[in-house]
């Protein structure tokens, strides 16, 4: 018999083991919910599977009586627009600032203390300012994501740029590169996959800011909906929404990873094969 640390599950076993905790949670939930509902049929805390199905059908597959629109689709679309725009702006800013900060000593001396100080500002604390400046519209919510996420990405990218071996930068100069052409041909291409990594890493933070902003001021969106129905203790809506958000977060992470592997084969070749 091998030691436990040397035993490896087969593929089938691994999949089963991976699903097991999810299955256990569901079973546990069903039991707990049944027990509570048996005692009090009007209990709202742990709705039955049946009420979930009803709620999902109501939110996702029928049009709202009031506006004639599909609330679930509408919420998802608005949230993803905000998230996508916020993350896209942040990533662009990260490239525009991270590369000069990491490469050019003059920029570093001039801006590093500022970026370090700025990244210490708690974004939620300046949310009121954003609402005052940008109004309650889309701008404020996107701005919150940008302000919350950009400093993280900038500092990450700056770090990655400064990790490029000095030998490479000197070699590029002996090959006739100027500061600009070295940025374009050596630094930027090496930073793109690392930028995608940074996006994956900060996506969780971006979701936090998105939902916070929607909870406070919005008229649609996944975060808005959860906080709206909270008033009626509608667990039957909240839980599917949470599961949906989790699934979306997981999906984006997975897609970004696959995309990076496909686009930058040289980047992943050096790492272990996954």
């Amino acid at each position: 018999m091998k030691k436990l640390m040397n035993l490896r599950p087969s593929r089938g076993t691994a999949i089963f083991l991976g699903l097991l905790p999810f299955l256990l949670i569901v079973i546990l939930y069903v039991f707990a919910s049944d027990a509570r509902l048996a005692e009090n049929p009007n209990d709202k805390l742990l709705p039955s599977m049946h009420s979930f199905v009803e709620a999902i059908d109501r939110m996702a597959f029928t049009e709202s009586k009031r506006s004639g629109e599909n609330l679930f689709v509408q919420d998802t679309v608005s949230s993803l627009q905000r998230l996508g725009l916020g993350v896209f702006i942040s990533a662009t800013l990260a490239l525009l600032m991270g590369i000069p900060l990491g490469l050019i000593p003059y920029v570093r001396s001039g801006l590093s203390p500022f970026v370090a100080a700025f990244s210490m500002v708690p974004p939620m604390a300046i949310l009121p300012i954003l609402f005052i400046v940008f109004g309650m519209g889309e701008m404020a919510k996107v701005a919150l994501i940008v302000i919350g996420v950009t400093p993280l990405m900038v500092r990450d990218l700056q770090q990655r740029v400064s990790e490029i071996p000095a030998e490479q930068l000197i070699k590029a100069q002996t090959l006739g590169g100027s500061t600009w052409t070295i940025v374009v041909r050596v630094i930027l291409p090496q930073m793109l996959p690392r930028l995608f990594d940074a996006v994956r890493l900060t996506l969780g933070t971006a979701w936090i800011f998105l939902i916070s902003a929607e909870a406070i001021a919005a008229t649609e969106g996944l975060g808005y909906r959860i906080f709206l129905v909270r008033r009626y203790l509608s667990m039957d809506v909240i839980l599917p929404y949470v599961a949906w958000i989790t699934f979306l977060a997981f999906l984006f992470d997975y897609l970004l990873k696959k995309f990076t592997y496909k686009m930058f084969p040289w980047y992943t070749a050096g790492k272990e094969n996954k």
Partner: peptide
Amino acid sequence: RYSVFSHLN
């Protein structure tokens, strides 16, 4: 070491 560019063939 380190004097070739890993992102270029």
